[in-house]
Amino acid sequence: MSEAPHTVKSYEEELKNLNSNIVKMGGFCEEALVKATQAIISRNSDNAETVIKNDEKIDKFETLVEQQVVNLIALRQPMAIDLRETVTALKISSDLERIGDLAKNISKRTLLLNENLPKNLIDALVRVSSNVQKQLKSILDAYLDRSSAMAVNVWEGDEYIDDLTNLCMQEVIKYLKENEKNLDDGTHLLFVTKNIERIGDHTTNIAEQIYYLVTGEYLEGDRPKGTEPVVTGEK
């Protein structure tokens, strides 16, 4: 926060504290997505279990942020930039909480997946995930730097995530069609792919919040959309 400090130091502290809880919460979400992805690549169930367990921490942060926001509104009546800080913290925390849930769901499914999945599927999945990880990291940096330009970058980057998601879906559908035995793994992989893409969407929501936080204005226009969803029927 670049503004001059508040005359009332305890108020300043409370806002800083709220800010740092969002940053910490975001850090846990980043870690969750990284570990969930590693679990898919390396078939390491320890990683997956850590993600599942750590989701509790993320949930607790959400409750904490919510309480802090309610207290700030009730006791400090924040205005202008402080009001936007307070309100966006609440909204960002709920997006981060969803990101945590989605990472947890990915990990639960990972534990059920077959040990030997085709490499092309893993590669396609990792490609989506590593790009979403980049988006998530950028958006947390944008929050720290209070940068509306970085937020807009992330917002626009979602189009590419949608494209990668569709490519990955196509691979999974091909895999499903190859053999009936692939049904279980293929279905889980479809959900895993979709969950990663949803994490990208929540990241975009956060971008909108940061834009509002910094500028006081809403990001106008429709969110960029990638290619149309895959058509599964044969022609």
Partner: peptide, 18 residues
């Protein structure tokens, strides 16, 4: 009160006056 244009206004209404 939500988004003033001037920094001085913002500093005053948010209790940041030096």
């Amino acid at each position: 009160f939500k988004n003033p244009d001037n920094t001085k206004t913002q500093d005053y209404i948010t209790g940041r006056f030096g």
